[in-house]
Every structure is written in structure tokens, then in C-alpha cells.
Design a binder for these strands. Structure first.
Lengths: 216, 216
DNA sequence: CGCCGGATTGAAACGTTTCAAACTCCGTGG
DNA sequence: CCACGGAGTTTGAAACGTTTCAATCCGGCG
């Protein structure tokens, strides 16, 4: 596929809501957030995107961007023109299927966020978010491990629907329990079992391995 | 397509989480809810499905159901076997594309719910939910109109992440403002402009008309 | 040094939950 | 015909979790 790699600094917008787009992008390195801001000026992060993921697959089927994409860290991305995508899918239907599957996964994650924000309280919400990113980063290894998490407490607040102040207190609580530490853009899981317990984390929604082949 | 229509009473499960499925279903009449229950016994509704929608498209690509589907009212559904779906898509790629587009729409709605639950308070959350369903029901007509909404206050609580008691008080507030009335399984919009205003509703996320044709 | 982004603190105000009880409507059985 | 029970809605009051505001602290960088 025609590749065109771009390097962008942290805090820059990759795409702005409403802007018309004719390519989808692939995160090569770094962290992105999908942002939805409300008319009252508040802001919600509705998804995080990690290396290897495609944050705006919807661009293939919708003419103008449905949300803003923000770089949380310096990022390297590749833009794939819609036409190239179309050709690839026409030639190898399995590609289209894989992308469709990715879309379903995105939706499942969003619904899990709904449940997370709707049902759990502060500490558990944050724990759940971390559990999810840990898995998606493929960082899980035993009871203790760490991984890149270039996300400020304010961003966590925007993702979990709470105030930055309360995020701070909750993060401190998790630290005091020796479950989790967030330092300098990395997440240090100190007790994976405990963290999952606090989060009531049940990761099956992220398992889409051993998938059904829809097409030949 | 091979049709096999089923009639089910309210309160019955259409599919249970984890159950293996080999068909997707289409809602012909009635209301469905997608349910996610947490280990602590609480329950979250992560989506509603209206007539004409397909609540478990993921079944086409994932072997076992990712969530439970509950009938909120008596429903008439059609089950379409995966094989039939596969054939149809292979023959008419536009069908596959339309289904993919529907999946994207589902995801967008879920993300809007994330923002709704994360950012707004009680009254606005409920107002927003109603605005969405009004549009999806194609019921909007002038400043006043009504439509089927066979959803108890307890269900609204499960969908918006609040307690039934507080839903009750908020619904009363909306009634007192003459914005909305919920009576006997129907929603009566008394002041559409006001309701949208309270909800900070911005419906563009539901517009996927005039879509881009990905495939020939 | 002074500034800036980000993390941290305290205390009061606020929105929401919880609990327990009562009320309405409606279909069923005595 | 009335009593009963169940599902759904409504009520009050106290307890609770979270937000808000305003200030402070910390480390890195020009």
C-alpha cells in the first residue's frame, strides 16, 4: 500500500470534527484520543488509540470526520487514501473483513466504556481503563509489569467523566493500595490481580482471536 | 433471504452473553436492549435497538455472543443465518458495505453515550436519550409529537447509569418544564426545541445519509 | 530566575444514591 | 364484587461520592 508517514508533535489535532477526509490513518507509534466536545465547553475522550490501530476507519464510509483526533504524545502515523483502501479490499476481501472486525471491536470497547462510566465509581473506573490499555498494549506479563501511558491526569478525567481533582485522589488511592502507579507517562502495574479485582475487569470483550471467517 | 420470523414476549432474552450464535437478527417490531452486567450485580444497558435495526451484527464475525439481548416489549424478529448473510455479501458487496456502515453507526452511538453519561447531569442525560430515540424512530415532526417508547424508568436508569429514584425525579422535572412526558410506554415530546436545548443535543452523529460508496 | 504544565491539598457546596415506605393501576382468584 | 399481589411510579430524609474553587507544590526549561 502507498505509505506516507507523518510525524506529529503531542497536542496536535490529527483530524478535526467536520473536516472532510479522504484517507484513513494508522497509528505507527504514539497515543491518540478521540475527542467529543459538548456545547457547554466540556470535553469527553471517547476512545484511545494505540500503535497498530486505525482510529478513523469510519472515514472510509463517511465523507466528513465524525470526531476530532488528538495526539496525546508525539505520534507517527500513516495515511492510507480511500482509493487505495478500496482497491485492496476489492482484491482481498479478507482485508475488508478484518477492518470490519476492527470496527466491531471499537464499538464493543465503547460499550464497555459506557458500562464503566455508568456503573463504577472513581477508583474502579480508572483501574478498568488501565486494565484495558494494558491488554491492548500486550504488556501483561505476570503480576507486575509496565507500559507506555502518555496520558495526563486531566486526560484521564476527560476519558472517565470525572474531575481532574478527583482523578488525582483516586490515583493516589490506587498507589496507596499498591495496585498501580502512574509516573512520567508510564503505567506501572504493581499488583495485576488486585487491579483487575478493583476494576471488576473481565477482559473477554477484547478477545476476538479465533474469529469466524465470514468470507472465503 | 430465508426468513424465519419469531415472536417473543417482553422480558425475554433473545440471546444470552457467551451463547454461541450462527445467525444475526433483525428487529421487525418492538424494542430490544443490549445488556452488560457487571460482577457486582449491577446492570448497564449499552444500546437500544428499534425496528429495522440489526442488534447483533457482531455475530457474523464473532463465534459467541458478546452481550445479552433483552426484549423490552413484545418483539417480532427475523433470524438470518450466517451462511445466507455470507452468500448475500459475496454476491452484492454493497450489502456488506451497508452492514459495515451500520456497525460504524452503532459505534458512534455508543461513543455518544459515553459522552452523555460522562458529561451531562441527570435531566440532560435523559433528555439526550429521548432526542436520540426520537430521531432514530423517525418520529420528529414539528415541535410536538410522540412515539413508542416501551421503556420503564428502571430501564432508563440502567441505560443512563443512574438510580431509578433519581430518574423518576428527573422525568418529573422534564414534565414540569413541559418538555417531555413519558406515559404508558410512549414518549410525548411537548417542546422539541426545549428538549434538545436541555440535552445539548447535536444530532449530526446520526446522519449517515449521502454516504460515500466504498465499493463499486 | 521565572515561567509553565502537571500534580496535589483542603474545605464547602452540590448532585446523586440509598433505604424504606406508600401509592396507583390492573389483572386474577375467592 | 372485593381482596390480593405485582409491576411500576412516587415520596422524604439522611448518607455518600464527587465537584468546585482557589491555592500550593514540583520539576524542567528558556
Amino acid at each position: 500500500m502507498p505509505e506516507q508517514e507523518t510525524l506529529l508533535p503531542a497536542h496536535s489535532d490529527i483530524v478535526r470534527r467536520g473536516q472532510s477526509v479522504d484517507s484513513a490513518c494508522l497509528v505507527v507509534e504514539g497515543f491518540l484520543a478521540r475527542i467529543r466536545d459538548t456545547s457547554s465547553g466540556r470535553r469527553q475522550i471517547t476512545a484511545f488509540y494505540l500503535p497498530g490501530e486505525m482510529p478513523d476507519l469510519d472515514a472510509l464510509l463517511v465523507p466528513s470526520a465524525l470526531a476530532t483526533l488528538l495526539a496525546l504524545s508525539p505520534v507517527r502515523i500513516q495515511r492510507v487514501p480511500r482509493a487505495a483502501m478500496r482497491d485492496a479490499i476489492a482484491r482481498y476481501p479478507a482485508i475488508g473483513e478484518a477492518l470490519w472486525r476492527q470496527t466491531i471491536m471499537d464499538g464493543m470497547i465503547a460499550m464497555e466504556w459506557v458500562a464503566n462510566i455508568g456503573q463504577r465509581q472513581a477508583r474502579a473506573r480508572i483501574a478498568h481503563l488501565i486494565c484495558e490499555v494494558a491488554i491492548r498494549s500486550r504488556a501483561v506479563a505476570g503480576e507486575q509489569f509496565d507500559f507506555a501511558f502518555p496520558v495526563t491526569q486531566t486526560h484521564i478525567a476527560e476519558a472517565t467523566g470525572m474531575s481532574p481533582v478527583h482523578v488525582n485522589r483516586s490515583v493516589q488511592a490506587l498507589r496507596a493500595e499498591r495496585a498501580l502507579e502512574l509516573v512520567d507517562g508510564r503505567a506501572f502495574v504493581r499488583n495485576w490481580a488486585l487491579l483487575q479485582d478493583i476494576a471488576e475487569f473481565e477482559g473477554s470483550y477484547l478477545d476476538m482471536e479465533a474469529p469466524v471467517r465470514l468470507l472465503a
